[in-house]
Amino acid sequence: MEVTQQARHLSISATRINQSPVALPITQSASSQEELCLALEQLHVTQKALSQAKQKLAIASQRLKQEQQQLQSAHQKIAEQATLFSQLEHQFDRDQRLERVVALASGVVHDLNNVFAPIVSISQLLRLKHPGLDARSQEMLRALEDSARRGASMVQQILISTQGSGQKCSPVQIAPLLQDVITLIHHTFPASICIYQNIPDPALGLVLADPTELHQILMNLCVNARDAMPTGGTLTISAENCAIDASMAQQHQNAHVGNYVVVTIADTGIGIAPDLRDRIFEPFFTTKTPDQGTGLGLATVLNIVKSYGGFIQVFSDLGKGTEVKVYLPYVTAPEPRGSEPDANPSPAVGSHLAPHSPSDRDS
């Protein structure tokens, strides 16, 4: 720095001499000239070093900026991983809770089966052994048998909701099933509900499932959507092929990398409160009145979907509606033989089934 200051003073002095109106004789000695040249040379070296230092400082600043960006990116990834871990932990806790409920329900189902079976058998036997009973007694025995059968049917439903039905699965084209469901709900749902569909029939893959169970799943979700729109709204049913990558598979406990058919059923209803969203698949949990639901519908849906190797996502906002996505892995099996084209073709892809008056609906 001292050399730089000396050189600066020399430069200023030289400038003043050049600008002076009086021509002064230059009587500098050879040694003074050498010192001046040396100082100027040192100034040049210093300026070059300063320029290099500035360049190094710029490079260091750029590296620091890159490291800061990398640090921010690492912090973001850590936050994402923490969020993902929290979600998976939450799903694990929910599954553990469901397993406990399932274990309890399975035990109750077994005991109830043992209760209803002899009631049905004895009521049938009494009617056969005593055909001469009066009409009132016969009616009471029939009522007893019917009630026991209904109880046995409810027990069977509980069993399916907790363990699955164990039905044999086969490659199924999901598009025709969806069209059947859409036709049914179009004729039975209130006219205040508009139904939209977007189903690319030829492009959808086959899913390995039981057609009856699959129909039950889709109807159950549509009925729930209807119940969420008591004053009317819009029900949208769509289906598409979807590839699940490793990133998305990590976000859901039951998801795996591969190809799926995803069916989306969305409504514009009342929505689901955040504190209830994780409980909707619990057996016997319902927000409906006892005469409207038993709380087994969504539990049955979840267990059947899981038995197919699929999973479900639910997105909901209070006052805006709910979107349920059912992911089913699709197979590359050949198309089942014997399938014939529908005599009554379904509406075109992406069409809107306009609501009509109740008098137009099937009874």
Rank of each mutant, 00 (worst) to 15 (best):
M1I: 09
L10N: 04
A14D: 11
R16N: 09
Q19D: 05
Q19H: 05
S20E: 14
L24V: 15
Q28M: 10
S31I: 12
S32M: 12
Q33G: 06
E41T: 15
A49R: 15
Q52A: 13
Q55F: 07
L57T: 14
L64P: 00
K65T: 12
E67R: 11
A74P: 01
H75I: 13
A79H: 09
L84H: 00
L88V: 09
Q96K: 06
Q96Y: 05
R97M: 09
R100Y: 02
R100W: 02
V102S: 08
V108S: 06
V109P: 01
H110T: 13
D111C: 02
D111V: 08
P118M: 09
I119M: 08
R127W: 01
G132K: 10
R142A: 13
L144C: 15
D146W: 04
Q156H: 06
Q156V: 02
K168L: 15
K168I: 15
V172F: 08
Q173P: 00
L177C: 11
L177I: 15
L178C: 03
Q179T: 07
L184H: 11
C194H: 13
Y196N: 15
P202I: 02
D210R: 02
P211H: 01
E213Y: 04
L214E: 02
Q216W: 06
I217M: 11
L221Y: 05
C222A: 14
A228Q: 06
L235N: 04
A239V: 06
N241S: 13
A243D: 12
A249R: 04
Q250Y: 00
Q251I: 05
Q251V: 03
H256G: 03
Y260V: 09
T264Y: 07
D267H: 06
R279A: 11
P283E: 04
F285G: 05
F285H: 10
F285E: 06
T286W: 07
T287S: 11
K288W: 08
P290T: 09
D291A: 11
Q292E: 14
G309L: 10
V314P: 01
S316R: 03
D317Q: 14
G321T: 02
K325A: 08
Y330D: 08
T332D: 12
A333S: 14
E340I: 15
P347I: 12
G350D: 01
S351T: 07
P355L: 12
D360Y: 12
R361C: 08
